[in-house]
Nucleic acid binder design. Structure first.
Lengths: 167, 167
DNA sequence: AGGAAAATGTTTACGAGTGAAATACCTGTT
DNA sequence: AACAGGTATTTCACTCGTAAACATTTTCCT
């Protein structure tokens, strides 16, 4: 069985016979897999009325286990400050996240999960990860580990090259 | 050297000691790599005032080597019909793509590259692919092939499971 | 102390994608 | 011929992310 990118590679090869198509094979498949996974993997979230970026934000608060400022949340979820502001508004309105003012520096806010947010995320994370595992299961655990390892290598290189995240 | 996801995995492990984090290792890294690559890899395109999805559309016309209808373009670029409509409007305004009416069925349109579009894409594709190759080069060609192979396996599985594209 | 510079967070204007509805057209059946 | 049903494409209303501008507050330097 052949994937959807194989035909694309053949087409490019025919039009540009001298072109090295390896980058397309890697990047094309990477972005395609990411798109499909993001669509598919969000089913448990969507049932709870959460979008993936909102889930990521809640998850960040859960996994670091302490309050975070909006800027820290932006770093932690690899997103812009403006995006975090918008997501926080929705999550605060839903009562999943609460805000505490810093008494020393009046610019900064400290965000934490409410009791309800904690309950939701504690229930949702195992469900979500389990569902993701089932999506990947056909690949076999060893093959998944191979994939995670190569991707980790690539990630180090990309983050280094593109000006990694300074602390 | 460690990638940005490794710390996230440790944090989850500490909060949910019984959680199998392999799916996060795979999917988290996959989406993070895809994001970084898409930001980084678009530099040559951006210089020409093209967005990635517009480039993909032009590329599809170039590599199949014949006219395509909007619906075929949507399939070919994995996007929705509405998105194709919007992109076509911009590309037609820029004179890179032209439209021919079907004389038999007056609903359908046939899109093709203009001479200018052909010139642009013929120049841009080798430049773009070369730039992508340089982004990946630190990984080594063999490792890139490994990656492409696992991703191809995964893609087959995902496309099969998520209701692949019937002809 | 005092003002420039930097940092934090929010707001704003805008562009792009989406699903659903709308539009226009074709095809087959009666 | 007429109509039901299906297809191709566009439009619409909406959501979300972004970059840039903004307001506020702190820090730094002299």
């Amino acid at each position: 069985m052949e994937d959807a990118v194989a035909e694309v590679l053949r087409q490019w090869q025919r039009v540009h016979p001298d072109l090295d198509t390896l980058p397309i094979a890697v990047i094309g498949r990477l972005t395609r897999c990411a798109t499909l996974l993001q669509q598919a993997a969000d089913a448990p979230l969507t049932r709870e009325g959460l979008a993936r970026p909102e889930f990521d934000l809640l998850g960040a608060l859960q996994r670091v286990g302490r309050e975070l400022t909006p800027t820290q949340l932006a770093r932690e979820t690899f997103s812009s400050g403006a995006a975090v502001t918008k997501r926080l508004r929705r999550l605060e309105e839903r009562g999943l996240v609460e805000r505490r003012a810093d008494e020393r520096d009046r610019r900064v806010a400290h965000l934490s999960l409410t009791e309800e947010g904690r309950r939701l995320i504690a229930r949702l994370v195992p469900e979500q990860v389990g569902y993701e595992a089932s999506l990947l299961s056909a690949l076999g655990v060893d093959r998944q580990r191979d994939l995670a390892d190569v991707l980790s290598e690539l990630l180090v290189l990309l983050e280094g090259r593109l000006g990694g995240v300074p602390i």
